[in-house]
Design a protein around this nucleic acid. Structure first.
Lengths: 202, 202
DNA sequence: CCTATTAATTATCAATCAATCACTACAATC
DNA sequence: GATTGTAGTGATTGATTGATAATTAATAGG
């Protein structure tokens, strides 16, 4: 057995990436430390050299996803906030489609029950995203692009809910449609409804 | 030990109800046959007298939920379809709030992986619900209540996605807000955006 | 009151899984 | 080139879990 030793840092990253991939494939709670060990080419106990408990692996996964999603934060003072928002949503959907573990973990109530720290992690992540959307809608409102009767907070909540709802349907329908295409189409409909000017006919 | 015997039919129903309640409390995949046995006051092996396998319990749960949700189908030829839709959504949110197991089971990818029959079950259920919404929006469109640029299918998809997205946030935020109140408020914003007539100022 | 049916129990199994521990081999440092 | 820190292994353990077999006892019908 050619035993390849890697630095602890590299291994940790390997394990986290394997966890994300496998969580998407077989579901977060079906994922065992043995699966992880097989995926990175180690023995099962070796996993515990890098993470004290299995929960710690999920926390590391959560941090990684937060960092990946958190990167895409928009400047609320951008010129055309609604276009910017659509780009943001498009990228968000892309991230989900690329790493299906995101909805899988997010949708997994088991994880929330067992690992409240992780739940809080994602709660904060979603909150900051919603606030970012709110900022963009607020800018659009002062620019006169947004109908005055809709509160920026509500518009942001609706966009985020729609993203997650569509992702859920995508997951429920076994990813048989293109999440990014279908998602951005629906979100465009949604945002059009918020606009002051009536959208062009299709 | 006072041993109480009940008819197989009653017990089956008891077990299904316990499964739904416990799935909401501790999550579908943390739910063991021992939990179920404790909940209905039996020993763990007794559960297998009523269901051959654990998967069969989930199928029974799925059928029960489908029957409960499927009951609320609206007649698409109703007088004011958009009001009817809001009522429908309100009841839908009520069902979710009353039995949180619904999103928990729906969101649980583990269940889908292990039990594809159940996944297909819910997929069909959601499809029929979306079609029901579509019918209502189509009626609203011919009545001139709906802006012509929005396709009834898209509006229906958006409403359903929003319901599920909000339910997910509710679950993620540990049910710290009132799902029915907050949900119907957002859905009203959403539907207002689809209307031809500008909504009244708040 | 007796008997057939069957709900439910006790006892137990095989599998799975997270985690521990003693030990080994590798690699950098002095 | 010996020393030392540490990545990794092999063996194992205790807890959990789904499921089975043999047995017991509650209920219904005659």
């Amino acid at each position: 057995m050619a035993r390849i030793r890697k630095s602890a840092e590299d291994r940790k990253h390997e394990i986290v990436m394997a966890a994300i991939r496998l969580a998407g494939d077989i579901g977060p709670d079906r994922l065992t430390t043995q699966h992880l060990a097989d995926a990175v080419g180690l023995t099962q106990p070796a996993i515990f050299r890098h993470f004290a408990t299995k929960s710690d692996i999920w926390l590391a996964v959560g941090e990684y996803i937060a960092k990946a999603l958190g990167k895409e934060q928009a400047d609320p003072q951008v010129d055309n906030p609604l276009d910017c928002l659509r780009d943001l949503v498009f990228n968000h959907l892309g991230s989900i489609a690329r790493t299906p573990a995101i909805p899988a973990i997010l949708f997994s109530r088991e994880l929330h029950v067992e690992n409240d720290q992780l739940r809080q992690h994602f709660e904060k992540l979603m909150l900051s995203r919603r606030e970012n959307f709110t900022g963009l809608f607020a800018k659009a409102r002062t620019d006169g692009e947004l109908a005055p009767h809709i509160a920026p907070e509500d518009a942001a909540a609706l966009v985020l809910a729609t993203i997650q709802g569509i992702a859920m349907r995508w997951s429920l329908e076994n990813k048989t449609f293109d999440l990014q295409t279908e998602g951005i189409r629906l979100i465009t409909c949604l945002i059009d409804g918020f606009k002051t000017t009536p959208p062009r006919a299709i």
